[in-house]
Design a protein around this nucleic acid. Structure first.
Lengths: 210, 210
DNA sequence: CAAATTTTTGACCGAATGGACAAACGTTAG
DNA sequence: CTAACGTTTGTCCATTCGGTCAAAAATTTG
């Protein structure tokens, strides 16, 4: 019986699938889908290639399962954006959560970045469906804040894009960020520096106060 | 005599190399280094694979030449950032130029994004050298503006990062941006909307005026 | 223990890929 | 015209890659 059967997974199957997905996250996120090989993944997972293929139908299956499993984690910060509470506090919280994701789950960020960069050939339905729907919903909340005069009137979609861009940048372009900051400032402190900068930017911009 | 000789290139050699690099930009930017094949590039360039390899030593050589040739274009917007003139105007100009690059040269943006995302295995020296030096230099200019109280005091490096992130996002994550905006607002107007949003963000932030 | 079932792997396969090469073709200078 | 040189391509090669298979090893079940 293969792992794809309707039968519930055994304990070993669950564990081994987890090990494989963990290894696959490493490999896919650093080499992209095409650049990753099953041999690399199986070696990183500490098992032979046929053994890996006993748990997953193939490369595509691993990737798809990985994406599916990470999707919730990925969308969680935006889902938390809430209508209740102060708008600026909500948005600051969203930025902070996204920045924490970039710090704590950089591989996940790069995995999605790789995928989208190459035209999202495998996750387009998710983007056009679940993601778009979620963004539409949250954009409405933001529009409400703007109508009430609680934050400056601007484009809520591009606001969300800018938050994605600025926060994910610290995961996706990590090597560049570190190289440019140099050994002195490129250490762990860079995330707090980024948080401070982004908070100031989103609150008041660059124009000095009259 | 191969194209790599010290002898100056013939007219045909220059033209053919250009055709190949143009095709390679297409292929590398959409599939990444590893995902691109010489066959794809040679087909896109309208010639046989051995013919392509008559003009370039190999895949790596094409990629390296392409990167080298695009580097100046890539750094040009930041190089223009100038000490003279109003700081906010200068920064707005930089943002505008970067956004125009994302609109007019998305393939170049994706090429660099692909490279950096995967750890910059082939262009690390450039990042640690030329790029870092340029950023250090411009960060000093920005610091000067801050000391003079002409813009809000903040971190110039993270300011530059945020400009890179927000503008390049529209090239690198283009399919996502278009999908989320939908057919209505995802058309050509999206760059003007982005420009308007970013200008407002960088000037005044989101906090409503007293 | 022994049978049945699950897990693991060495060996193998066809297709794709980066690249080499020599022969053919085209162009041009004498 | 023809020899020399630059250009082009069909053919071939070694390696890598995704995936298969049958048999061995380990585990579970009765």
């Amino acid at each position: 019986m293969t792992a794809a059967s309707a039968r519930p997974l055994t304990r070993i199957q669950s564990e081994k699938r987890d090990v494989i997905l963990e290894a696959a996250l490493d490999v896919f996120s650093t080499h992209g889908y095409r650049g990753a090989t099953i041999d690399q993944i199986s070696e990183a997972a500490g098992m032979s290639k046929p053994n890996l293929l006993y748990y997953f139908k193939g490369k595509e299956d691993i990737h798809e399962t990985l994406m599916q499993r990470l999707l919730d984690t990925w969308l969680a910060p935006l889902k938390e954006l809430d209508d209740i509470g102060d708008p600026l506090t909500e948005l600051r919280g969203y930025i902070r959560r996204k920045l924490e994701m970039a710090r704590d789950f950089p591989r996940e960020s790069r995995l999605f970045a790789n995928e989208i960069l190459q035209g999202a050939p495998r996750i387009m339905p998710m983007i056009e469906g679940e993601l778009k729907q979620l963004v539409d919903e949250k954009a409405e909340i933001i529009k409400g804040w703007m109508r009430a005069g609680r934050i400056t009137r601007t484009d809520p979609y591009h606001l969300i894009f800018s938050i994605w861009a600025t926060t994910q940048h610290y995961a996706d372009f990590d090597v560049q960020v570190r190289a440019v900051l140099g050994p002195g400032r490129g250490g762990e402190g860079r995330f707090e520096d980024a948080a401070r900068f982004l908070e100031g930017l989103y609150l008041d911009g660059l124009k000095p106060k009259g």
